[in-house]
Simulated assay, not measured.
Amino acid sequence: MVRFSNNLVGILNFITFLLSIPILIGGVWLSRQGTSECERFLDKPVIALGVFLMIVSLAGLIGACCRVTWLLWVYLLVMFLLIVLLFCFTIFAFVVTNKGAGEVVSGRGYKEYRLGDYSGWLQNRVSSEKNWNKIRSCLQDSKVCKSLIDDGSSGAPVPVNEFYNRHLSAIQSGCCKPADSCGFTYVSPTSWTKTNTTAATNPDCNAWNNDQNILCYNCQSCKAGLLDNIKSDWKKVAVLNVVFLVFLIIVYSIGCCAFRNNREDNSWKRYP
């Protein structure tokens, strides 16, 4: 009789195998249908994840249900390494997202962001010109700034007071408008008139351009806004990782029981 732990490992890995199929199909779809580099950015990682889950789940399924001990051993080894890597990544994610937050601006509904407030590791990711050119291209393709104009009623410019009271996202605040310290005159959410009172201490003031393809995409505040968005997403991922870690540890423990069952059965067959 197949023992309970072997059955449970088999069922869990069968479910994982089924989940790997749409993941793999999604990665292939991204690689073929993506019209820009940004849309194809995740195709290879998604395909790799789908193939990885498919192979590992097959190893666990066959190893547990067909009593192939060496396959189950490989499955447990991969699971152990995955648990260690996920644990390290979770700790790392909490550490690098510990610093940095938006600065409240008096009389404004939005916050402003400074690159120096974030961890050095995150700053280095956006300081590279090569990396930032790709990121900037993706931000432009997403039309995140154009949405500020589209929100206006009847196509008329958004009144200045209404704009100042808006709750902008970190990326919109950092990339789509100049810093309040620049003292520019408001025309529309993405159009501002430069004045002679430009704050020389803030390099973002000189980087601002009313061209819809430039705006503040080259500003330090834009990089900071992106990092704040990443920080928020990573914190959510880190919390989910903790839950996933607990699940993996439970599955690993059940797998160890199934591995022990296989060894005992093999020993019984070898020495009747």
Rank of each mutant, 00 (worst) to 15 (best):
N206T: 13
N206G: 10
N206I: 12
N206W: 08
A207P: 07
N210S: 04
D211P: 00
D211G: 00
D211R: 01
D211N: 02
Q212C: 02
Q212G: 01
Q212W: 02
N213M: 06
I214F: 08
L215K: 00
L215A: 00
C216E: 10
Y217D: 06
N218L: 10
N218P: 07
C219L: 10
C219E: 13
C219G: 13
Q220A: 12
Q220Y: 12
S221F: 11
S221N: 13
C222V: 06
C222Y: 04
K223I: 08
K223D: 11
K223F: 09
K223H: 11
K223W: 06
K223E: 08
A224M: 04
G225R: 04
G225T: 04
L226H: 09
L226W: 09
L226P: 09
L227P: 12
D228Q: 13
D228F: 08
D228P: 08
N229S: 14
N229M: 11
K231I: 09
K231H: 11
K231L: 07
S232N: 06
S232V: 03
S232C: 04
S232D: 05
S232Q: 05
S232E: 04
D233F: 12
D233H: 15
D233E: 10
D233C: 13
D233N: 15
W234I: 14
K235G: 00
K236Q: 10
A238L: 02
A238V: 00
V239P: 01
L240T: 14
L240Q: 12
N241K: 09
V242D: 08
F244M: 14
F244G: 07
F244I: 13
L245R: 05
L245P: 04
L245T: 02
L245D: 06
F247M: 08
L248H: 08
I249E: 03
I249K: 04
I249L: 04
I249Y: 01
V251M: 07
Y252Q: 10
S253Y: 06
S253I: 11
S253G: 14
S253E: 06
I254E: 00
